[in-house]
């Protein structure tokens, strides 16, 4: 599903975010990216939906070399790669329902399809009762659920999660992890960058550890360290 071949990413300030990284991730895998701040976890994720392009190496997503993707086809890639962030990126002036619907509107889905899909996904993330609430009326965990609903409503093949529990307390984090696990079990490949030792150690999934842009460990059913 995802393949990195000797990928190097250097930012304009000459900071090397990822150095000669290679990895192969199969469809349906759940992978943790761990490592200290600045080790390249976010860059790893951002390369996969082509928010950034690598200086060297090749990246395949769903069999396609995304480095060769022309600009107008990048949206097609992103429709297959959902993304969730530590800061949720919800639209504060739209309700829970509308935040999720917005993602479908943006890709031109017909109103009837939106009407059907949004309640379904809100049910999945357990927010049916809060559909009409505004984001600032929700707890952090609930806001992250909305963000996951938005990323997953289009049923992407891959879900990228950049420290999704970074702002949440441990109990709430467990709920979010259960949700991501459930999404993973539908066959969606999940990549999650995290600092949360407890979560990684409990879930016992594949762990890719980064340090100064290098992959220093790639371990099936691994722990944080």
């Amino acid at each position: 599903m995802i393949k990195l071949d000797n990928v190097t990413k250097v930012y304009k300030n000459e900071h090397v975010a990822l150095r000669d990284a290679s990895a192969n991730i199969e469809k349906g895998e759940f992978v943790f990216l761990v490592g200290p701040s600045g080790s390249g976890k976010s860059t790893f994720l951002r390369l996969l939906n082509r928010e950034v392009k690598p200086e060297e190496g090749t990246i395949y997503v769903a069999g396609k070399d995304i480095g060769k993707l022309p600009g107008y086809k990048v949206p097609d890639l992103r429709r297959n790669v959902g993304a969730v962030f530590q800061d949720y990126k919800l639209l504060p002036t739209r309700s829970v329902h509308d935040n999720v619907a917005f993602a479908l509107e943006a890709i031109g889905r017909p109103r009837s399809a939106i009407k059907e899909a949004v309640p379904q996904i809100l049910e999945l993330v357990g927010l049916t009762a809060k559909a009409k609430n505004m984001p600032d009326e929700l707890s952090g965990g609930e806001q992250q659920r909305v963000s996951i609903a938005r990323a997953f409503v289009n049923r992407p093949l891959i879900l990228l999660a950049d420290e999704p529990t970074g702002n949440l307390d441990p109990a709430t984090s467990v709920g979010i992890m259960k949700l991501l696990d459930r999404i993973n079990r539908t066959g969606t490949t999940v990549l999650m960058a995290t600092h949360d030792r407890g979560i990684v150690d409990t879930m016992r999934r594949r762990v890719i550890e980064l340090d100064h842009g290098r992959i220093v460990r790639d371990q099936a059913r691994g722990v944080y360290e």
Binding site: G71, P75, D76, L77, R78, F102, A106, I107, G108, R150
Partner: peptide
């Protein structure tokens, strides 16, 4: 958000 979810330019 539109960019992120794959809206066309």
């Amino acid at each position: 958000v539109q960019r992120l979810v794959g809206a066309r330019n």
